[in-house]
């Protein structure tokens, strides 16, 4: 019971999580040839949906100008990003189930819904300008010795600080 409590119930220290994430990212890089990325997968899902309803996103300048990371035989839906994104969700689900903390959550108010949508759109737009979210453009970029990871990191903290100030002063 005590071991169960320690492993599944209590939050792990940040440094333990950090080491495990780093090891898993190394494993991922060695197996798939690419470090962990998240939002590029969402971009492909969006593009895949547009393709299904008749648009031709694969002709867009964005996909022509930049290496999109898809290998031969992979499509907008069937690719490594889809697998890892679903794996993250399944892993998180297992963790909350083992801790018996699973709970359906409601949308609290119309206001919360509006801000969530607005925040999601801003984040999605931002990830395309910076070629990744805090995983692809920060967590995976810095160990890849890419300078853009450090730039992303600095401005992520600046943005979070400004965001918290605005939240605290005007929205809460």
């Amino acid at each position: 019971m005590k071991i169960y409590h320690k492993i599944f119930k209590k939050p792990w220290p940040y440094w333990v999580g950090g080491i495990i994430l780093a090891l898993l990212n190394i494993l991922m890089l060695s197996i798939t040839g690419s470090a962990w990325k998240v939002t590029t997968g969402f971009l492909f899902w969006g593009a895949g949906i547009l393709e299904k309803v008749g648009f031709a996103p694969n002709k867009w300048y964005y996909f022509a100008a930049y290496n999109n990371g898809l290998k031969d035989g992979q499509s907008f839906f069937m690719n490594t990003y889809t697998v890892i994104n679903f794996a993250v969700i399944i892993g998180a689900l297992l963790a909350v189930l083992w801790a018996s903390e699973f709970k359906w959550k409601k949308i609290k108010s119309f206001r919360q819904l509006g801000f969530a949508l607005l925040g999601g759109i801003l984040m999605g737009y931002g990830t395309r300008l910076s070629f990744g979210c805090n995983i692809g453009a920060y967590f995976s970029a810095i160990p890849s010795f890419s300078l853009h990871g450090w730039v992303f990191g600095i401005f992520m903290f600046v943005g979070a600080a400004i965001g918290c100030k605005i939240l605290y002063k005007y929205l809460l």
Binding site: K105, K106, I107, K108, Q112, C164, L167, Y168, L172
Partner: peptide, 15 residues
């Protein structure tokens, strides 16, 4: 603070 995610609960508590 039900149905609210980081950093809302912490900021609400501080306020």
């Amino acid at each position: 603070c039900l149905f609210e995610a980081c950093p809302i609960p912490l900021l609400k508590a501080l306020k």
